[in-house]
Design a protein around this nucleic acid. Structure first.
Lengths: 338, 338
DNA sequence: CCCTGGCACTCTTCGCACGCGAGTGCCAGA
DNA sequence: TCTGGCACTCGCGTGCGAAGAGTGCCAGGG
């Protein structure tokens, strides 16, 4: 177990390194933070911290920098979440309130997060899985061709083409539309399959094929469209990454273009609160030199999607966590209102 | 007027510089391209070319590199468009044919362009303005709240909420839906306003307010939604930009995040064929060290949107132009089929 | 008149030696 | 257990010299 002072030393190292981007030595530490002990003592502590793997030195006779493990300890034990100041909160709220539709909410959120944290922001669209159906509409585009439109409570709209096995009359269409909506409107997506499975039985034999096709398309939309979308922004902030630039940034840009990777990244974090994944804790190799700070957000008490930022492991964790949490909270409010 | 050989020298300089990324000298030139003259002669030609502003030297006693003006001459007079090879064409076609909907077409196009050119790809969604209405649907979400869904011939779907001044009956709704579609289905967007202006007169006085509201929402969608969307990809290719990295790449990333900038960029190019804007020819400052190669594409003979790539001025123009043109052609085909 | 070979000159780049300074590890003493 | 002191290690910046690439210019030849 590490003594209290050694933890303080670690905290000081993290804070200084985040600020200066340069390895921090024992002398500089005692000067900036009044630890009440001499550099020599700090050196001993540093040796112990290095022994345990919390810090490392880039080369012999250079200062120390925190390791992933060191950041982890810092985040878990040594630092809290820095709350946003009231003016900042007001700014967040004002900025988000101007949004006119879901796309706009997400777009604004991305910009906001990127600006606040000066890092790359990632915002997932509210998921279909946990939201509810507001309305299902069927349009006849041709005698044997329908369009299925699904409207969710979060304002998201998904549409699919349906090719019918047989022509489908206007009356049957109206009937199906009505029955479908009376069963699923206001219900959660996960409940829909159980609610519609016996629906084809209510129709004439001629129409059952079409009804089944429509239903399976609907279910497909619910499930398969869980390939959720997301929006990213603030990639220009990657240029602040560090000196060893091109090598670090390239895999990150590549990872950011793979939506699948990002979705998995956000999806892995299951904590109710703010989740931080540091450096090699990220499964994806390209993100091994980055940290991901994410949190769920939602219109009710429940999280319907995630948002977060991607930045260098050397980041201001308390501030970033505070910003992410605050933005998530206000986005949730906005979604609940609309 | 420049002599034929001097033009050849310029062409050789551009080709070599694009390949090596290094200033090219007179000796290297005579070795790689058999111009049939000595380095000394080439030096004289180079001096003349520099005099006219087509090439420049980074420092005294270094090789020459092309200027924007030099690239311009190269593109206009010295090089054609390099057509894609048959295997490449097949690959393009195969890759695009797998698309399931419009989003997918655009997404695949972006990936394809980025891979083929190894640069940043930008694809604009097919514009509403020049396409035609496939179907307009109206759904009653509540007695005085409608949803308007517009489906275009390119498969794009736009939806809007409409708050009615007065409750609107189911019968009136069906009536409006039928009348609306019989008038506008299959028509061009630009023609719609003239086709519907007298529509309110066909309804009861009670309903006219709602009908007008619906119509104005529809017209709004047609016009205002011309804030066209676009998709970008291949930003990781920015890392191949050059050595003076962070300074060049940052403004480019920033510009790429501003959709407005990109739309203006694509919009400016009005040529029927492939348009190339080189370095400072781009209005946006951040893109002064990049070239933009763009072209219109569309389902019929007419262009409904643009696509292109953004890369360093030092790029393989003939190859890039060929790739851009080929992709545009095949995307057009795919859109026409669906 | 244009091309060519030769020559002197200019810069950049690279390697190397050197000294400085920051930082460390260790040890003896309080 | 902390502290001051001391020797040691490296990384980094500087200055210098040699090498190399490239240029401009000039005089001579087809």
């Amino acid at each position: 177990m590490l003594s209290e002072r050694r933890l303080q030393v670690l905290r000081a190292i993290v804070q200084d390194y985040v600020g200066t981007e340069e390895p921090v030595g024992s002398k500089a530490l005692t000067e900036r933070h009044n630890l009440g002990v001499s550099p020599a003592t700090v050196r001993n502590d540093m040796a112990a911290l290095e022994e345990e793997g919390f810090i490392a030195q880039p080369h012999t006779s250079a200062g120390r920098i925190p390791t992933d493990k060191g950041y982890r300890l810092f985040v878990d034990k040594l630092a809290g979440v820095k709350p946003m100041s009231p003016p900042e909160r007001r700014a967040i709220q004002n900025f988000l309130e101007g949004a006119v539709d879901l796309d706009d909410v997400v777009a604004r959120t991305v910009r906001l997060l990127a600006q606040l944290t000066r890092q790359v922001a990632v915002v997932q669209y509210p998921s279909l899985t946990r939201s509810t159906v507001r309305h299902v509409e069927l349009l006849a585009l041709a005698p044997a061709r329908l369009m299925l439109v699904l409207i969710t409570d979060t304002g998201r709209v998904e549409q699919r083409m349906v090719d019918c096995p047989a022509p489908f009359g206007e009356a049957s269409l109206a009937d199906l539309r009505a029955r479908l909506n009376s069963r699923v409107a206001g219900r959660r997506f996960t409940d829909v399959p159980g609610l519609v499975e016996d629906l084809p039985e209510a129709f004439e034999a001629d129409d059952r094929g079409t009804v089944s096709t429509v239903l399976s398309t609907l279910l497909e939309t619910l499930v398969e469209e869980n390939e959720e979308r997301l929006m990213i922004g603030g990639t220009a902030n990657l240029t602040r990454f560090g000196h060893d630039f091109p090598l670090t940034i390239r895999p990150v840009l590549e990872a950011l273009e793979e939506q699948v990777v990002l979705l998995k990244l956000l999806g892995e974090a299951q904590d109710p609160g703010v989740t931080v994944r540091i450096g090699h804790e990220n499964a994806h190799e390209g993100l091994n030199s980055t940290s991901v700070v994410s949190v769920g957000y939602g219109s009710g008490g429940e999280a319907v999607a995630k948002l977060g930022v991607v930045g260098p492991t050397r980041m201001d964790y308390p501030g970033t966590m505070g910003a992410v949490r605050a933005v998530a909270r206000y986005v949730g409010q906005i979604l609940a209102e609309s």
